[in-house]
């Protein structure tokens, strides 16, 4: 328990250092653009692949479970859409990105720590926490809405593709379903969740990477901790935000 409190306290102390005025705005902007490319743009392909397959599987399973003459067929499309909007494109994508982006951030910062690059920054009088972590958090939080909306669209398209050749589902029924009873708030809800998840993933992973101590083995350990703890915190906040917003 004491250890947990120690980590929480140290996390907030680190965040205080991270959210201080950058030494040079020009450098901060350049770093952020670089991070958008390395964290955000490079995640598009994995989000695309996962979303299209998940959308397809979602539609097929709904069709399989809703084979009842009194249940309208369009509900399959509607259900797929709601699943993608409410949960998959924010939470599941966040968990996948915790693995990809979280381990990337932690291993990068951990390597910089064990090879004394962080010390070199401190030595020069640079606030290493702000210089290294703030662009990562900013980039990920700025880019996550793009990934979320992209995932929603691709997931729904995946369901549409699955409607060809799936027993009990026609493309026409699916299109009727995804265009019925649309609630724009669901998109807002999903985007708000994804923004908070992006902050959690980037900051928790940065915390584990920044405080790496030791050598190569410890960098690997920090990466694992980053993925595990950011996933747990994401799931915890998923419940809290769902309770608060729905």
């Amino acid at each position: 328990m004491l250890k947990l409190l120690f980590h929480i306290g140290r996390y907030f102390v680190l965040m205080k250092r991270v959210f201080s005025r950058p030494e040079r705005w020009r450098v901060f902007l350049r770093q952020t653009i670089r991070e958008i490319d390395s964290i955000g743009v490079s995640s598009i392909v994995i989000v695309l692949i996962i979303s299209v397959f998940m959308g397809a599987v979602c539609a097929i399973q709904m069709a399989y479970n809703l084979q009842n003459p009194i249940i309208p067929r369009y509900l399959i499309g509607l259900g797929t859409r709601e699943t993608m909007l409410l949960e998959f494109s924010s939470t599941i994508v966040a968990l996948i990105l915790a693995g990809k982006v979280g381990s990337n951030i932690a291993s990068e910062l951990g390597t910089m720590r064990v090879t004394e690059q962080v010390d070199a920054l401190e030595m020069m009088g640079v606030n290493s926490a702000s210089y290294l972590i703030l662009p990562k958090i900013t980039a990920f939080v700025l880019f996550i809405p793009v990934l979320t909306v992209f995932s929603m669209a691709i997931g729904i398209v995946g369901g549409y593709l699955a409607s060809f050749g799936t027993k009990g589902l026609t493309p026409h029924d699916y299109v009727v379903g995804i265009t019925s009873f649309f609630q724009p708030f669901y998109v807002t809800y999903s985007l708000v969740k994804s923004l908070i998840f992006a902050f959690i993933i980037a900051s928790v992973s940065s915390y584990h990477g920044y405080y790496t101590n030791g050598g190569a083995l410890d960098v690997g350990r920090s990466s694992t901790h980053a993925v595990v703890y950011s996933s747990i915190v994401v799931l915890l906040f998923n419940v809290i935000l769902t309770k608060l917003m729905l």
Binding site: T111, M112, T115, E116, Q117, D119, A120, M123, G125
Partner: peptide, 19 residues
């Protein structure tokens, strides 16, 4: 302290160049 650090230079054991 930040100002005086600008008067210092350090060569680390492994070089510590930014990769």
């Amino acid at each position: 302290r930040k100002a005086i650090r600008k008067e210092m230079g350090m060569v680390f054991q492994g070089g510590a160049l930014f990769d």
